[in-house]
């Protein structure tokens, strides 16, 4: 009963935040300097009449309040409008790009969680050992590397000097595949470098959080109780230490989701990777309001859902989480 109430409350909070964000998104782009129609009609030879027509076409001639209401209605009904630069439906453009970004982020997230948390646990259990020290130094280094820089460095080393991996795109241009398997391999080969560039920083962060939390938890009194009961070190880890370390890790996961999107924009730009990040980057340069609004809306939703899920996980992990 309490659980349903808690979930309901968190869900409503999420909707309110989402509404605030889409409202903010609308006004943000109206406040930013630059007129998309002028950018579009760069020649300057366009007659005032044509300019007005284009304004009317995109609904930019309406008062701001009316524009806002239309915008709200469209957001709810899933109409994200026509892209100012691509002249096609924003939904279709995003759908095309989305798949690549989802593949990149999903692969990155799985690797980050498995490797980051896994090495964190190993280091914490062997605190002070050589393994621990090596991992610690490696993660400190990894944590301080800027994503775009590691990306560029890898392009130089693996793409140019060694020439073993493709440096850009998602499929080799002009390639003809004998089977879907061959295409998949080509696709994966294109994913390797962007994924590594993307995960280095976050993996290090998960390592550090997991290690320090677990080291802390292992000094708690209830761990001694567990040992006193005759539990083996493995059982102490799985039954008592890890569950108690989960809260900070879940918090980091929720934060990670919003950070990794920023990382994706950098990585996709560096590797000319046709995904959402690159789309957004181009849209900012071209003041393409519909695409920006739709992708901001999308990323905001993803971040909020991640936070919502972590709130539910808190409740499931910790019985002390109550009326908040």
């Amino acid at each position: 009963m309490f659980k349903l109430k808690y979930i309901g409350k968190k869900f409503i909070q999420m909707l309110i935040t989402l509404f605030a964000i889409i409202t903010f998104n609308f006004f943000l782009f109206r406040i930013l300097p630059g007129d998309p129609v002028k950018l579009l009609a760069r020649s300057g030879a366009l007659s005032q009449e044509s300019l007005d027509r284009i304004h009317a076409l995109f609904g930019l001639d309406q008062p701001l309040g009316i524009q806002y209401l239309i915008y709200l209605k469209n957001m709810i009904t899933g109409k994200y409008g026509i892209s100012i630069t691509y002249r096609t439906d924003v939904g279709t453009i995003i759908a095309e790009r989305m798949g690549n970004t989802v593949a990149l982020l999903a692969l990155a997230t799985v690797l980050i969680i498995v490797i980051g948390i896994g090495t964190g646990v190993i280091a914490a259990m062997r605190r002070g050992s050589t393994t621990d020290k090596v991992l610690l130094v490696a993660s400190m280094t990894g944590w301080s590397l800027p994503t775009f820089w590691t990306g560029l460095l890898m392009i130089v080393v693996f793409g140019v000097t060694l020439n073993v991996l493709p440096v850009s795109g998602i499929l080799t241009p002009g390639a003809v595949y004998t089977s879907t398997g061959a295409m998949l391999i080509d696709y994966l080969r294109h994913l390797i470098m962007p994924t590594i560039a993307l995960i280095i920083v976050d993996m290090a962060e998960f390592f550090l959080i997991t290690r320090s939390t677990l080291v802390d938890v292992m000094t708690e009194d209830f761990i001694l109780t567990a040992k006193g009961k005759g539990l083996s070190e493995k059982k102490i880890l799985w039954r008592h230490a890890l569950p108690n370390s989960m809260l900070p890790i879940v918090t980091t996961l929720a934060l990670y989701v919003s950070l990794v999107i920023g990382g994706a924009i950098q990585v996709e730009t560096v590797f000319s990777f046709p995904g959402m990040g690159q789309l957004m980057y181009d849209a900012v340069l071209k003041r393409d309001y519909p695409i920006l609004e739709a992708s901001f809306f999308l990323f905001a939703t993803v971040t909020l859902v991640a936070n919502f899920i972590s709130d539910i996980l808190y409740m499931l992990i910790d019985p002390r989480v109550k009326e908040l």
Partner: peptide, 19 residues
């Protein structure tokens, strides 16, 4: 441990797993 020799720990406040 516990089967033959059990311990009542000092400071029961934290000797139980909160989860």
């Amino acid at each position: 441990r516990w089967k033959d020799i059990a311990v009542v720990f000092q400071g029961a406040m934290n000797a139980l797993n909160p989860l």
